[in-house]
């Protein structure tokens, strides 16, 4: 017995509502973020992640209010990502009650930003989000590249090297999303998850592609992830967090029940 593997529901928030799209189309409304957060906390979520996907900057304040409200009544770790570009953005989210921030595109534009953020606030609150896509052919040694802008823009950066560099600069955790699997419900990219988890000393959260409870189990056992993140299987009542945890526990995974 020891450290539990974590289940983290992720809420994409657009203008104050939880939304979920499949491959960035067919966006469905999944409710009020404070109510959804409250439900996940009651079901036994180990942490909560909010991803602000609001396009317009004038709606950024909405996310602050959501975080403030959730932090006032839900006493588990909260991570907020999306639109974190400078130290002031991090400060604002921490002041609102977030415990960690997710940095994605800003790290690609300026890797030193990760160092600056970790030096200022501590590695424990800096999660670097990596969106990776397989660029090797099936008969080649697997190789993944970092993409930005929701998986549309290649950067030419190797995902493994990037993950190691982010940790060296101060990332305390890696949130790893497979852009090939995100929204497909086909399961995590296990080879990618395993490769990154083996390559870095810090915890890795697997993300992208969860459609069944077996996928969560695979992410932990085969992918060696420390935590698994999912959205749609929880949002629409298909499974509760509690069901997912019992399923994992029955398969020998240590969870917080």
């Amino acid at each position: 017995m020891g450290l539990a593997k974590r289940i983290i529901p992720c809420m994409d928030v657009d203008a104050g509502r939880v939304v979920k799209g499949v491959k960035f189309v067919d966006i469905r409304d999944a409710g009020d973020p404070v109510e959804v957060a409250r439900r996940y906390d009651m079901e036994g979520a180990d942490e909560l992640t909010f991803l602000d996907i609001t396009a317009s900057s004038d709606q950024r304040e909405t996310m602050i209010h959501v975080v403030e409200q959730v932090a006032g009544e839900v006493f588990i770790p909260l991570t907020v990502g999306g639109g974190i570009r400078e130290v002031a953005d991090i400060q604002r989210m921490l002041n609102a009650g977030a415990d960690k921030v997710g940095i994605n595109t800003a790290a690609v534009f300026d890797p030193e930003f990760v160092k600056q953020a970790a030096d200022r606030f501590g590695s424990q609150c800096i999660v670097v989000a990596i969106d990776a896509k397989r660029v090797s052919r099936n008969d080649e040694k697997p190789c993944w590249e970092i993409f930005t802008h929701g998986g549309r823009k290649p950067t030419g950066i190797d995902a493994l090297e990037w993950a190691q560099r982010m940790v060296a600069l101060g990332a305390g955790e890696i949130l790893l999303t497979s852009m090939d699997r995100d929204g497909t419900r086909d399961g995590f990219d296990i080879a990618l998850t395993r490769a990154i988890s083996d390559a870095v000393s810090v915890p890795v959260i697997a993300s992208g592609g969860v459609g069944t409870l077996d996928h969560l189990v695979e992410g932990i056992i085969d992918g060696k992830a420390d935590a698994v993140l999912a959205a749609s299987i929880f949002h629409f009542g298909e499974y509760s967090i509690g069901e997912a945890k019992r399923y994992m526990a029955d398969r020998g995974i240590e969870v917080r029940l």
Partner: peptide, 22 residues
Amino acid sequence: PEELQEGAEGSRLKIPHMGWNQ
């Protein structure tokens, strides 16, 4: 310590120690 291990298969433990423990 670096290379902290756990369990029969000796899987490497991550640092920081992050998450819910007993």
